[in-house]
Structures are given as C-alpha cells and as structure tokens.
Design a protein around this nucleic acid. Structure first.
Length: 350
DNA sequence: CAACCGTGGGA
DNA sequence: TTCCCAAGGTT
C-alpha cells in the first residue's frame, strides 16, 4: 500500500498534465476508456517530439480524420502535407501503412494485443507498450527517455546510455504495478517531464525524493550518463524555385526512401560535404536563374545544411518536377527546410 | 550495433 | 551561437 508505484500514482492523481489525447485519471477510474486511435496517433507523433509541438498537429489530424478508417482512406499527399513541419517523415508514411493494415487485417479495430501491435509499421517496443498500457490497461512497461532518466536516478545507475537501456528496462519492469499500468506509465513520464527533468531536477518536491539513490548521492543532476555524440558535418546544396506566369510553382514529390522521403519539395542538387564550388546540379527547367539574397541554413539530425536558392520566371516545360497551381500550393505542406527557401521569396531579408 | 531520420525551444 | 534534447523506429 505504500510501495513506490502507489506513491507515484497518488502524485499523478493530483498532478497529471492535461492533454487532448489523455483521459484524466479520475475519468478513467470512472470507467471512461481511451480511444486507441487517438492514443496510437499521439504516441507516434510524440516519438522524439515535444508535447508542445505535437498538440496542434494532433488537433488538426483528429479533426480532419476522426477515425483510423478515415485516415486509412486519405490521400498520401494530404497526410504528408498535414505532417509537414513535424519532422521524422517516415513516421507519417508508416502512419498510413499502419492505418491501412488496421483496416485490412484487423477490421478497423486496434488489437488489444502487444505482440500484434508490435508487428504494425511504425510501432516499436515503446509505442506497443504505450498503446497496450494506456489504451487497454495491459501490464506492459514503457521505456522512453523519461523512464530511462528517472530509473537511472532512482537507482543511481552510472552506466552510460544506450548501453544502460537493458538494465534500466529491468528496473522499470520491476516497479510497474499490476493495477493501473496505463496511469502508471503516464505518471513516470509526467514525473520525468515536469520534475525529474534533464537539468535542474526539482528533487525537493518529488514524490520519490526519499527513495531516490541519486538524490542521496548528490548525482541526480549528472544522470543519466550518455555516450558523446558525433559532430555534425556541414553540407551544401542548391534548390530551384521556378514560377510560371500563371503563378504555378515547380515542385516535386521526393522518393519514399531517405531524407524527407515522400515530402513535397523544390527540385535541386544533391547535398554534399564540399564547402567550396557549391553544387548546382542540373536545373529542372530551362530559365534565366538568379540567386535570392541570403541563404537557407538548416540543421538536420546528423548534418548542417547551407542552401543556395535560385529563382526564375519561366513558361518552359520542366524536365523534373510538376507545376502546382498557385491556388493549390500551400507552403505549409513543405518540410521546414523547403519552407525556409520559399520564405526567402515571400519575406525577403532586409 | 550504429547510422539514419526533423524540428523548435531553452539554456 | 551552439549545444542539448523531446512519449523512438527502421535498417
């Protein structure tokens, strides 16, 4: 009755954060069941992404596609466009694959089965456990960055990540209660997100301040240890913004594989590590190109990019890409790096 | 197992 | 400015 999980659940009952996809603990205990579609969608969006960034995307997605069946029936380009700006675009491609698999293979109903969930595209160990526990109250243990940090501190584990993950997973599993596993999973993550934060943890008001070994040892601030990251190289490239006299823009849908796969973008050169003689590639259409003032600087997961932006007005026939009518072009459909290139025209630097 | 895969906010 | 990091998955 006074074990660690009970103390944390008591804290969660008082301090649970409100989120559009979350069923508050009081409602849940009154019998309200979470919608597995909304739990799945939110969990995929939350992969490596902050709650603040996800919230507006989640609200737009669920308004436009209220059910997994509606999402499964959507056009690929609409889903990719709606995801634009959120990053990690393989998630959006797998989101559609998963929605269509749910309809085709599971009758449009998410399976209340951890092993079955794990087989679906874009659902890995974390997300399968999150859906199992949060949506279906099955006893599965989520291990995300929050859980890793909280466990490393609670048990004063100094092994660096990612090597420490198996050990931290074992510790997290041992703590998980048989009752309310879904609320418990969310409670540990809320604790990590609000009190047991990476920097300056609020140990003084933490429900686990007494049993926490790292707080006793004075090492909480320094945990978890992480293996150092590799430096990001700088790459260079060129993009071509061609405008037809009727206002249409020349764009292309990128191939499904690789960086920004499946997304709308400007035609351009490869992005290479050579600092001087910047790659120009082959223009996608014959025109009189002129460089825009300024350049696009953007940082991806594993490299920095500096992009030269060329612009031309032309009514020639493109050898690459497709003209998108002015009224059909939404800059918000572009991933951020390409929206920045468009911004050089729409809002020129002073 | 390590590399690849985005973005924006905060320190 | 630069670095870190956020409810990871796939290959």
């Amino acid at each position: 009755m006074c074990d660690l999980s009970t103390e944390l659940l008591d804290w969660y009952d008082l301090h649970a954060r409100a989120m559009p996809w979350r069923t508050p603990p009081a409602e849940k205990q009154a019998g309200v069941r979470p919608d597995p579609y909304r739990i799945w969608l939110s969990e995929v969006m939350l992969q490596q992404t902050t709650v603040a960034a996800v919230t507006e995307y989640f609200n737009r997605f669920t308004k436009r596609w209220p059910t997994v069946s509606a999402l499964a029936a959507a056009d690929d380009a609409d889903v990719m466009g709606e995801w634009a700006g959120l990053g990690y675009y393989a998630r959006a491609r797998n989101l559609l694959k998963c929605a269509r698999a749910i309809v085709a293979d599971h009758g449009g109903i998410f399976p209340a089965d951890h092993a079955a969930l794990l087989k679906l595209p874009g659902i890995g160990p974390y997300t399968a456990a999150a859906i199992s526990s949060i949506a279906f109250d099955l006893r599965h243990v989520v291990v995300d960055g929050n859980v890793e940090r909280v466990m490393a501190r609670l048990y004063n584990v100094h092994t660096p990540l990612p090597a420490a993950k198996p050990e931290l997973t074992t510790l997290a599993e041992a703590l998980t209660p048989n009752s309310r596993p879904g609320d418990y999973a969310q409670a540990v993550m809320d604790l990590g997100a609000t009190l047991c934060t990476p920097k300056s943890p609020a140990c003084g008001i933490c429900p686990w301040r007494m049993p926490c070994l790292a707080r006793q040892a004075g090492t909480a601030q320094d945990l978890p240890k992480k293996t150092p990251k590799k430096p990001k190289p700088v790459r260079h490239g060129t993009v071509y913004l061609a405008r037809r006299s009727d206002g249409a823009w020349l764009l292309e849908t990128r191939p499904d594989k690789g960086l920004l796969g499946g997304m709308l973008g400007w035609p351009g050169s490869d992005w290479v590590d050579v600092a001087d003689n910047r790659p120009a590639g082959m223009p996608p259409i014959e025109a009189q190109w002129s460089p825009l003032a300024g350049e696009v600087r953007h940082t991806f997961t594993h490299f920095h990019l500096i992009l030269t932006v060329l612009h031309a007005d032309t009514d020639n026939t493109p050898t690459q890409g497709t003209f998108v009518p002015r009224e059909a072009f939404r800059p918000s459909d572009l991933p951020t790096v390409f929206r920045k290139a468009f911004d050089l025209i729409a809002n020129p630097p002073h």
